[in-house]
Simulated scan of single mutants.
Amino acid sequence: MSLSTRSAPRHDRAARGAGATVEFRSVVKEFPGHRALDGVDLTLQPGEFVALLGPSGCGKTTALRVLAGLEDATSGSITIDGTDVSDLPANRRDIGMVFQSYSLFPHLTVLSNVEFGLRMRKVPKDERRTRALAALDMVGLGVHAERYAHQLSGGQQQRVALARALVTEPRVLLLDEPLSALDARVRVQLRDEIRRIQIDLGITTLFVTHDQEEALAVADRVAVMRAGTIEQIGAPEELYTRARTSFVAEFVGLSNRLDGVVDESGTVVVEGVRLPLIDTTTPLGPVSAYVRPEDVVFSPEGIPAEVVSSSFLGSFRRTTVRLSSGALVRIQHGATAPAAVGDSVFLALTGAAVAVQQRA
């Protein structure tokens, strides 16, 4: 991989095999009184962008820090292209990292900040300047090379941090919630820019976030973590439409939690409607079914309900209704569809497969 070839076609980069294979093998990390990672197994393919998604304390940042060499694993191993790096210090793992905080040196110019890692590697002055300028051009900041951090916006500072991580041409890029300190509009712009650069360079990337929209928007695969383990990993579409556990169904996107019963037909009956199960091995009996808002629609007849609230969200509207049982149900529908508070309406379920959780 070379920044000097950043305009090469994508398929040429894939042929060069720029990205590395990264493997977590039964990785455990224990802190006093707390097991942060509990036997994590995860493989990142060359050039793949994988997001670790989960609530605070689930172990996602610990996993990233163990890969980076900033924490030692208690047991298990981490390999990069088949080489066990578990005992290597951070500076010998050939990894670039971008943190939530920009961590720029305030007394250095933008160019000098980006050059810093190359200087530590004793790269000749002319070469490091050329490479640093190329990295700044890649993130759209070449014209600001002689400015200082305080003269840049937050989004620009994070672009400098990204350029600094990429300029050493690492085999693996780690992103530790790099967008959380930015406002919403800048966050969306920068996440798309990061994805574009990542695809262009073909660099294997691990991205830690608690923001499900970010994870679903940019990752090839998303690993949902819970209590130090990976609950489910898959393509964003798979996680959203085929959540295998109630935790994933609740954490990824919005879901309506409705009472249901799994019967001998191998389906779950919710409000008198039979729905297919994502997990067809679910035992018979009462369950909570997780129905997505877009899988509930207004209908001329069906399940009676009363409109409680309705929010206009630009291209769509989200309306909450109350069923006769007292359950609240959210519906995602067209922005122009009428939904006045107090209206009596009927609902239908689209029949999409659902995740369920057994009830006592």
Rank of each mutant, 00 (worst) to 15 (best):
R187D: 03
Q158H: 09
T280F: 03
V50S: 10
V224G: 13
R226E: 15
H333C: 11
G39H: 12
A337G: 05
A337Y: 10
A165L: 02
G302M: 11
A90E: 09
L37D: 13
S265L: 08
V208W: 00
E231N: 06
V252P: 06
V291Q: 07
G140N: 03
I278S: 04
F346E: 10
R330E: 15
R318C: 00
H11K: 07
A135Y: 12
T43S: 08
T336C: 02
A227L: 13
A360P: 15
D12K: 10
V329W: 09
E177K: 05
L152R: 07
V308R: 14
A90I: 01
E30Y: 08
D94F: 02
N256K: 02
E301L: 11
A227Y: 12
A305V: 03
M225I: 04
L44S: 04
V167G: 01
Q156C: 11
I197K: 11
F316R: 10
F105R: 14
D183M: 11
L108N: 05
R317D: 04
I233T: 04
E294K: 03
G96K: 05
V297I: 13
V167N: 02
V143M: 13
F251I: 06
G253Y: 11
R317V: 01
I199T: 14
R92T: 01
E213N: 10
P170C: 02
V139R: 08
L254I: 04
R13H: 05
A337S: 12
S309L: 04
H150L: 13
V261D: 02
D183E: 14
A360Y: 10
E237K: 08
T204G: 05
M97L: 15
V248C: 07
V224I: 01
D87P: 00
R129A: 08
F207W: 07
G202C: 06
Q212P: 00
H144V: 01
V188D: 12
H34F: 15
V172T: 05
V270N: 03
T209N: 04
G54P: 04
L201S: 11
V329Y: 10
A161T: 03
L108G: 03
A149S: 15
V40L: 13
R93T: 08
G266S: 07
G76P: 05
G140P: 03
I230A: 03
A335M: 05
R131C: 01
S75A: 15
A337R: 14
L141P: 09
L258H: 03
V354E: 08
V143W: 10
V27K: 14
V160L: 09
Y102T: 13
R35Y: 10
R159W: 11
R317M: 08
R35T: 15
T267Q: 08
A335Q: 10
R196G: 12
I80W: 05
A305I: 02
T61R: 02
I197Y: 14
V98Q: 02
E127W: 01
E193I: 09
S2G: 01
I331K: 08
E271D: 06
E306A: 09
L104G: 12
G39L: 13
Q157V: 02
V188H: 12
F346L: 00
A73M: 11
E306H: 07
V28T: 07
L328P: 01
G69Y: 00
A219R: 08
T83F: 01
Y102F: 14
L166G: 00
G33K: 03
R257E: 15
T245S: 15
T267F: 02
S75C: 11
S26C: 12
S180V: 08
C58M: 06
V114P: 07
P9M: 08
A348I: 02
L44V: 04
F31E: 14
A8P: 00
